[in-house]
Write a protein that binds this DNA or RNA. Structure first.
Length: 406
RNA sequence: GCUGGAAUCGUCUAGUGGCAAUGACAAGAGACUGUAAAUCUCUCGCCUUCGGGCUUCGUAGGUUCGAGUCCUACUUCCAGCA
């Protein structure tokens, strides 16, 4: 089982530590979206420097390129990308929702590669095998988001997600056989601490490698994904189903806006077991997502929004988002956020970043991404601190009032 | 000086008698939530009660129902010849 310590609980909100084979995640935490094994425009060293604790890569993208076997050959996602910290992979289930021309059957999902048109089929079993090969610490079950928001479609997608979850759990357990969690379980196996860092495991293997071999590797963990859309009874049913499974944590999927998220999370997180971590999938573009998510019991978040918006010139400030490309910043020689200690705000002005965007310099996207990622990571860290100190409510109202000009 | 060619939005450009006139860039603004996303959308002569009105293709005339388009002169630029 994935080790998760809860240090403080206040209603549904909690402060904890997820202990992964590649290190700890102090929660609540914002996880950087590294879809193709990289956080766009940023190096892993920059991610570490700005305070990120973990990254999330995407199975769909990585099996297309470079292929899960290559990442396994490289020693897993952490070694391959030089992140050397806790990692997640999304299952590829979200692509069912977001890609056109996918064929969904009970067995799985057929799709053509958007790169070269090759035919692929992803099933619960193949997603598990690919995620084991990619080697992230925490995997998501292969789920199905309904494309429509009708009750019938939501119910059908949720029920399929549950049937697929059974298959994910079975395959995950099969893959886990013979696998050792060196950091937490090896002690029991041989009575002594293992000194070597798990990150080197990929290079320690000897003998012929077989595809999807998982022997002699650190343990990997599986989150079930709660679906059900905006329907309370479906969300409750899905939460109960996921809670009954032998999984290490939970992803909460199919959430697209903070509207109604509080009541949905109250419903779901009151059903999910307290002692396992919960990841709110894809939410965090709007700071309010992080506040509501943490307040109602979510431990980790990931979102492509901060880096995507950064690349497009939209930057977070404590007073709301601004578009640095706007003409009003041409002569603005002040820092974007004087009280921000990211590399951009500490060293450069708004006018400079405006210039970099206008001239389409690569550095524009780098600096903007550093700032936005730093912003959401630190807002989430600050939420954690406020939960510890008991100031969460005050911090939340103060932040949201200023950010959203309420 | 002679002979050709050319002049269209901030820039480059389409347009060879029929609706302010093509495309790109630049400019202005907006969107973005488990990334087919360094992407996409809108505006881009002036005015507008959103029906439309007005003024525009180097300058000035002319032909024509109608001219960026044809004719004449001029101006500027380019090429070739002196």
């Amino acid at each position: 089982m994935l080790k998760f310590d809860i240090e403080k609980q206040d209603g549904l909100a909690r402060v904890g530590v997820i202990h992964t084979p590649h290190g700890d995640i102090r929660t609540p935490a914002f996880v950087g979206a590294a879809t193709r094994a990289t956080v766009k425009a940023l190096t892993m060293q920059e991610m570490r420097a700005l305070g990120s604790q973990a990254i999330l890569a995407n199975t769909y993208h990585l099996i297309l390129r470079p292929g899960s076997e290559l990442i396994q050959e490289a020693g897993g996602l952490a070694n391959f990308s030089s992140w050397h910290g806790p990692t997640f992979t999304d299952s590829g289930g979200f692509q069912i929702f977001s890609l056109p021309n996918v064929k969904i059957t009970e067995n799985g999902v057929k799709f053509k590669s958007h790169i070269d048109g090759r035919n692929f089929e992803m099933t619960p079993e193949s997603s598990m095998r690919d995620q084991w090969a990619i080697g992230a610490d925490i995997h998501m079950a292969f789920d199905h988001l309904a494309k429509s928001d009708s009750y019938e479609d939501m119910k059908e997608a949720m029920e399929r997600t549950h049937r697929w979850l059974d298959r994910c759990v079975t395959e995950h357990q099969r893959l886990a056989e013979g696998t050792t969690n060196r950091r937490f379980e090896a002690v029991r196996d041989n009575g002594s601490e293992i000194a070597s860092e798990p990150r080197n495991d990929g290079r320690e293997r000897s003998g012929p490698r077989t595809a999807y071999s998982c022997a002699n590797r650190p343990m990997q963990y599986l989150y079930a994904v709660v679906q059900g859309g905006t329907f309370d009874d479906l969300r409750a049913e899905s939460a109960r189903y996921c809670a009954s499974q032998s999984v290490d944590g939970f992803g909460i999927g199919g959430v697209f806006t903070a509207d109604g998220m509080d009541t949905m999370l109250q419903l779901v997180n009151n059903i999910l077991p307290e002692d396992k971590p919960r990841h709110l999938l894809g939410m965090g573009q709007e700071p309010i997502d992080l506040f509501i998510g943490a307040e109602y019991g979510c431990d980790t978040f990931d979102c492509v929004g901060p880096t995507r918006m950064a690349r497009n010139g939209s930057l977070y400030t404590n007073d709301g988002r601004i578009n640095i490309k706007n003409a009003k910043y041409i002569h603005d020689f002040t820092p974007l956020m004087p009280d921000c200690d990211c590399e951009y705000c500490k060293n450069y002005t708004r006018a400079y970043l405006h210039h970099l965007f206008k001239t389409d310099e690569i550095t524009a996207k780098v600096l903007a991404s550093i700032h936005n990622e730093h912003f959401v990571v630190h807002v989430t860290d600050r939420i954690r601190e406020s939960l510890i100190s008991g100031d969460f409510a005050a911090y939340k109202s103060e932040f949201l009032a200023r950010y959203y000009h309420q």
